[in-house]
């Protein structure tokens, strides 16, 4: 049965505002708003940070009207699938598990994962080297280092943000340790400071507010920076699988922003180092 034009009109009025037009002249982008300096909410109540700046930059390049909305991390992928918005820019790494349910653009940043612990803790005093461990192909030397970390973590309470590459790494490579999961990096920070957890794993850039803040004197990075393999292929824009046209638009915009150095500039502004991806 052909739908009556009147009903279609009613539906159009009722549901206006959602991404009705598929020409992507308007795009709704979700970010978490609790993951400084990637994305956070400032005292003026506005979303701010690397993802937000880059999102606005990309939208200008795509010639699209963008609305950036905040969405709690643990529901950020299901809500994309549910059609609450069209793209995710929330410091989200491209991983195989996520690729099963959504698609990603090319990466726009890569930063390693590091452990942070109180300076006066045994874990910090163990003298782990601050090398870079590529998890794609683990050498015998790197495996020995992983085993050493695993041994040190045994008996400690380790905090991590839920549904992240960092949680996956702990569960797959660190064996049967006491893992506590948090809904946001901010709450993870709070509990690390409160001493409810002994050590925590997160992205190097995500640790910046804590380590460089006034409370940072008591905490330190411990051991190697982990990247690639289980940690994914850098941070990208999450898109629904069926929205290939949107993905192409984002890819072109990201490429041009990488080529002319805009992404590097924003990274230096927010992270203090160039996280621009070299893939």
């Amino acid at each position: 049965m052909k739908p009556s034009p009147l009903l279609a009109l009613v539906a159009g009025v009722l549901f206006a505002g959602s991404a009705a037009a598929q020409d992507w002249s308007t795009i709704r982008i979700a970010t978490e708003g609790a993951y400084a300096p990637w994305n956070f909410t400032n005292a003026a109540g506005q979303l701010d940070g690397f993802d937000v700046d880059l999102a606005n930059e990309l939208c200008a390049r795509m010639g699209a009207q963008c609305e950036i909305v905040a969405q709690a991390w643990d529901g950020i992928i299901p809500a994309l699938q549910a059609g609450r918005y069209d793209a995710i820019m929330a410091g989200m790494s491209i991983t195989d598990a996520r690729m099963e349910v959504i698609d990603f653009t090319r990466s726009y940043a890569t930063t390693p994962a590091i452990f942070v612990a109180p300076k006066d803790s045994d874990f910090a005093a163990a003298g782990l080297p601050e090398t870079r461990v590529d998890m794609t192909e683990i050498s015998a030397e790197e495996q020995a280092l992983l085993d050493q970390v695993k041994g040190l973590l045994d008996g400690l309470t380790v905090g991590v943000q839920t549904a992240t590459i960092h949680e996956n790494f702990l569960r797959e490579h660190m064996g049967d340790i006491d893992i506590r999961t948090y809904d946001s990096q901010e709450n993870l920070d709070l509990d690390l400071q409160a001493g409810r957890i002994d050590v925590a794993l997160a992205d190097q850039s995500g640790w910046q507010p804590l380590l460089e803040g006034e409370l940072g004197e008591d905490f330190t990075r411990v051991g190697p920076g982990f990247a690639r393999g289980i940690f994914g292929r850098g941070v990208g824009v999450g898109i629904r699988k069926e929205d290939a046209a949107l993905k192409d638009k984002f890819n072109a915009a990201i490429q041009s922003a990488l080529d002319d150095g805009t992404v590097s500039e924003l990274a230096i502004k927010w992270f203090g180092f160039d996280s621009a991806t070299t893939d």
Binding site: K2, P3, L7, A11, F15, G83, R84
Partner: peptide
């Protein structure tokens, strides 16, 4: 309504 778009 025969409306095929994202609605939320």
């Amino acid at each position: 309504f025969g409306y095929e778009g994202y609605v939320d």
